[in-house]
Amino acid sequence: MCGRPGPCNGSKPRHELALTGAPDGLRAAAEAAGVRIATTAVHTERAWLEQITHLAAVKAVVPEVAQIFDLADAAQAHRLIETGHVQGKVVLRA
């Protein structure tokens, strides 16, 4: 580590943005500004949600939880995520 954000090898820093439901045309504008966009599709159809709910209820789909933090420890959770070595979800509870 060199003590500053971004790459320490002299290369240009990478900027990334993750969006759900990004508007059309945003990807080209972001790429022109040197920002990579990762998008996620979200299904909201009732039948699909009922199927996923059932699979979760019977434990056919189980998310991997790396660690659970109290909301007061959100900064610590964020630092863990920033390490880039988390396998699973980091959960905040109220």
Rank of each mutant, 00 (worst) to 15 (best):
D70I: 00
G3C: 00
V91W: 02
G34Q: 14
A38L: 12
C2F: 10
A28M: 14
P5S: 06
I81R: 10
K12W: 10
A57E: 15
V61N: 10
A47W: 03
L80N: 00
K89Q: 07
D70C: 02
E50N: 05
C2Y: 08
I52L: 08
V86T: 13
A47M: 06
G25A: 12
C8W: 07
F69D: 07
A56K: 08
G88Q: 06
A72M: 08
Q67C: 06
H43S: 14
L26T: 13
G10F: 03
E16G: 13
P7T: 10
T44G: 11
G3F: 00
Q87D: 15
A47F: 03
V58Y: 00
V58K: 01
N9T: 10
V58N: 08
V62W: 07
V58R: 04
A66F: 13
T40Q: 12
G6D: 03
A47H: 04
A66M: 04
K89R: 11
A38Q: 14
G34L: 13
D24W: 08
L80G: 03
K89V: 01
Q67R: 11
A94S: 14
G25M: 13
Q87M: 11
A77M: 02
C8R: 05
H15N: 11
I37T: 01
R79E: 14
T83H: 04
Q67F: 02
T53H: 08
D73C: 06
R4S: 12
N9H: 07
R4G: 07
A60H: 07
H54M: 09
A32Y: 02
I81C: 09
K12A: 12
H15G: 05
F69G: 04
T40K: 10
C2V: 14
V91S: 02
D73W: 04
K89P: 01
A38S: 15
A75V: 03
G25I: 14
V91M: 06
H85G: 06
